[in-house]
Simulated scan of single mutants.
Amino acid sequence: MPQTLSIASWNINSVRARLEIVERFLIEESPDILCLQETKVVNDTFPAGLFRQRGYNHQVLHGQPMHHGVAILSKVPIREHDRLDWQANGEARHVGVRLDNGVRIENVYVPAGGDIPDRTLNPKFGQKLDFLERMIQWSTALDDKPTILTGDFNIAPMECDVWSHKQLLNVVSHTPIECEILARLQASNNWVDIGRKFFPAPERLYTWWSYRARDWSESDRGRRLDHMWMTPDVAEKAVSHRVIEPVRGWLRPSDHVPIVTEFAF
């Protein structure tokens, strides 16, 4: 019989500030593996005990004071295999692990890129583009091992991935140059966008809503910034994909919600 395995990805926007909803998510969804981005905590003060109480005894942390930070928490054995510096400045934005079945999970937090889509006027935007170029170099050189690439990509690539394509064309996360570079990343290793495999365009599929909205649900000005891609051999094993949208309405939420893919290996 195939073994089922569920993998979740969630930009938590400070794991210590969201402990209550993290625990609720673990109770209600209980994914086998949880990839977190923007944990905003050093490894020594990561709330590891909460996860152990829920059976996540395998933990690979890559933390940083106040900003960034990624982590992979798992009920099944995982082995760390890389921490790549695609930002080229030491920021904690990536961690990768291997499962016993040989599948690699690469958890990434792509920089947001600031507010102005011009690398001359806004160096943060240039850093984002350079980060993605380094990812393309990595992806192009990958061997043939089965791999899952997931996390907060901070880009909504398709017209239907945002509430208004026309109004967001010059807004960072949906500009043509960002969408083009993400398309090149996807093509560099024939990555399968599992969200759009299960919810083909133009179906609504948002994962992020701004804190600025008075009522995020009523205005529904969402974007699909969080993604789970995989090599075709892994995509064949995927049996479901969900965006856990109600989490956005929980107490003191992140502006992102979890995405969960289930596999039958």
Rank of each mutant, 00 (worst) to 15 (best):
residue 201 A to K: 08
residue 190 N to E: 14
residue 193 D to Q: 08
residue 249 G to Q: 14
residue 121 L to A: 15
residue 240 S to H: 01
residue 39 T to M: 09
residue 139 S to A: 15
residue 84 L to F: 11
residue 161 D to T: 01
residue 12 I to F: 07
residue 86 W to G: 06
residue 96 G to Y: 05
residue 35 C to E: 06
residue 203 E to W: 02
residue 199 F to W: 15
residue 209 W to C: 02
residue 163 W to N: 03
residue 122 N to M: 10
residue 44 D to S: 14
residue 262 E to F: 00
residue 264 A to D: 14
residue 237 K to D: 09
residue 109 Y to F: 11
residue 187 A to Q: 15
residue 172 V to S: 07
residue 120 T to I: 13
residue 6 S to A: 13
residue 115 D to R: 13
residue 5 L to S: 03
residue 142 L to I: 01
residue 248 R to T: 05
residue 47 P to N: 12
residue 175 T to E: 13
residue 245 E to S: 10
residue 138 W to D: 12
residue 227 H to F: 10
residue 19 L to Q: 15
residue 190 N to I: 05
residue 255 D to C: 02
residue 115 D to C: 00
residue 145 K to F: 05
residue 10 W to Q: 09
residue 88 A to M: 09
residue 114 G to V: 10
residue 10 W to V: 02
residue 118 D to W: 09
residue 68 H to M: 02
residue 261 T to L: 04
residue 112 A to F: 06
residue 239 V to N: 01
residue 1 M to K: 07
residue 11 N to I: 08
residue 78 I to G: 03
residue 67 H to C: 00
residue 156 A to N: 08
residue 168 L to P: 00
residue 255 D to V: 08
residue 226 D to V: 07
residue 144 D to V: 09
residue 107 N to Q: 04
residue 49 G to S: 11
residue 39 T to A: 06
residue 6 S to G: 04
residue 234 V to S: 04
residue 85 D to I: 06
residue 131 F to V: 01
residue 187 A to H: 08
residue 222 G to E: 10
residue 161 D to L: 04
residue 265 F to C: 04
residue 143 D to F: 06
residue 53 Q to A: 13
residue 261 T to A: 15
residue 234 V to R: 03
residue 95 V to M: 03
residue 44 D to Y: 00
residue 24 R to E: 11
residue 85 D to W: 05
residue 187 A to G: 15
residue 248 R to S: 03
residue 45 T to Y: 02
residue 110 V to G: 04
residue 88 A to W: 01
residue 233 D to S: 13
residue 195 G to Y: 05
residue 205 L to G: 15
residue 147 T to G: 00
residue 101 N to S: 14
residue 248 R to Y: 03
residue 184 R to H: 07
residue 104 R to K: 09
residue 97 V to Q: 08
residue 174 H to N: 12
residue 237 K to R: 15
residue 98 R to S: 14
residue 1 M to P: 13
residue 6 S to L: 07
residue 65 P to S: 10
residue 41 V to N: 05
residue 40 K to L: 11
residue 104 R to S: 12
residue 136 I to K: 12
residue 109 Y to C: 12
residue 77 P to L: 03
residue 136 I to D: 04
residue 111 P to S: 04
residue 149 L to V: 14
residue 203 E to N: 13
residue 247 V to R: 02
residue 237 K to Y: 02
residue 30 S to T: 14
residue 63 G to L: 03
residue 123 P to Y: 03
residue 164 S to M: 03
residue 242 R to K: 12
residue 49 G to N: 15
residue 207 T to I: 03
residue 229 W to T: 07
residue 104 R to D: 01
residue 10 W to G: 06
residue 236 E to R: 14
residue 178 E to W: 07
residue 225 L to C: 08
residue 173 S to W: 02
residue 49 G to L: 12
residue 114 G to E: 06
residue 189 N to H: 15
residue 233 D to F: 00
residue 43 N to Y: 09
residue 194 I to L: 15
residue 12 I to R: 06
residue 51 F to N: 07
residue 180 E to T: 12
residue 170 N to K: 15
residue 148 I to K: 11
residue 222 G to W: 06
residue 16 R to V: 12
residue 262 E to Y: 00
residue 136 I to C: 07
residue 176 P to E: 08
residue 190 N to G: 12
residue 169 L to C: 03
residue 229 W to C: 03
residue 6 S to M: 10
residue 56 Y to N: 06
residue 86 W to D: 05
residue 61 L to H: 06
residue 246 P to M: 05
